[in-house]
């Protein structure tokens, strides 16, 4: 690769959606979404439930398929081919609301299985990487426990480490703290903030507005399948332009 193509790859957006639409039966969940995430950028998506925000990020790694429009992730156009889907999924990590750790495997095995079975990484290397990431999410001492023996906050941190073990270039978070007890939210957000500080590209669906303010370069507000407002955090919170954004912020900030 020459220097100029490298530079081009660096400036090209990590994720780009153009005119993406999706329907569940007759109901249109996504309406011609245009959306870009630059390399190293941190985008937070918020909005009322049913607004299509989870569907949107689930389209990025094709857990949901879109009908119209184009999705480009790290230079790969997502289509029906297994190859494009596999390429994108290896590149993009995801953290779910319900953690979705594998209950039949120990914490360490949860972190090692994908690198070993999919990337063909050796057992020793996979274990070394796994232990490193477990330390980073401050859970090194739980390596041999099963997910069922951990608290929700610990499980979610393991889930983050599991995604990181695949060395993704971007991370998707789908309401990572919504299923947690209040006292565990901070420990998970701290890990995500730290990750953001290290320059990871990330898209995060969340209702945690204080977190959004600290971590986001840009906040998107979605309603009824559309991106209604898009602004840097300061402008988003102090000077929202759309009426729907104002109403939403009014509800969520002054409870």
């Amino acid at each position: 690769m020459t220097t100029s193509t490298l530079a081009a790859a660096d400036t090209a957006p990590m994720i780009r959606l153009r005119g993406v639409s999706k329907w569940y039966g007759d109901f249109q969940v996504l309406k011609k979404i245009d959306f870009e995430v630059a390399r190293g950028e941190r985008v937070v998506i918020c909005g009322p439930s049913g607004s299509g925000k989870s569907t949107l990020i689930r389209c990025i790694n094709r857990l949901e398929d879109h009908r119209d429009g184009e999705i480009l992730v790290n230079g790969v156009t997502l289509d029906h081919s297994m190859r494009s889907v596999a390429a994108v999924r290896q590149d993009v990590g995801m953290v779910f609301q319900q953690f979705n750790l594998f209950p039949h495997l120990t914490v360490l095995q949860n972190l090692m299985i994908a690198p070993m079975k999919i990337k063909g990484v050796s057992k020793d290397e996979a274990e070394a990487t796994a232990r490193e990431y477990l330390l980073r999410v401050r859970i090194g001492e739980q390596a041999h426990k099963y997910p069922g023996e951990l608290s929700g906050g610990q499980q979610q941190r393991v889930a983050i480490a599991r995604a990181l073990c695949m060395k993704p270039t971007a991370m998707l978070f789908d309401e990572p703290t919504s299923a947690l007890d209040p006292e565990m939210i901070k420990e998970v957000l701290d890990v995500i903030v730290e990750l953001a500080g290290q320059g990871m590209t990330m898209v995060c669906v969340t209702h945690e507005m204080a977190f959004a303010r600290t971590v986001a370069d840009r906040i998107l507000f979605m309603d009824k399948g559309e991106i209604v407002e898009e602004a840097p955090p300061e402008a988003f919170f102090t000077n929202p332009r759309n009426e729907r954004t104002k109403a939403f912020l009014g509800q969520i900030l002054h409870r």
């Binding site: 999924r89 995801m94 994908a114 079975k117 995604a163």
Partner: peptide, 24 residues
């Protein structure tokens, strides 16, 4: 969610069944 987590990590349909779904 187990299937989704496996897919998100890059497991194809067959590996998902063999390593994640069937053992459980």
């Amino acid at each position: 969610g187990q299937r989704e987590a496996a897919h998100a990590l890059g497991f194809g349909p067959i590996r998902t069944v063999v390593y994640i779904i069937l053992p459980q």
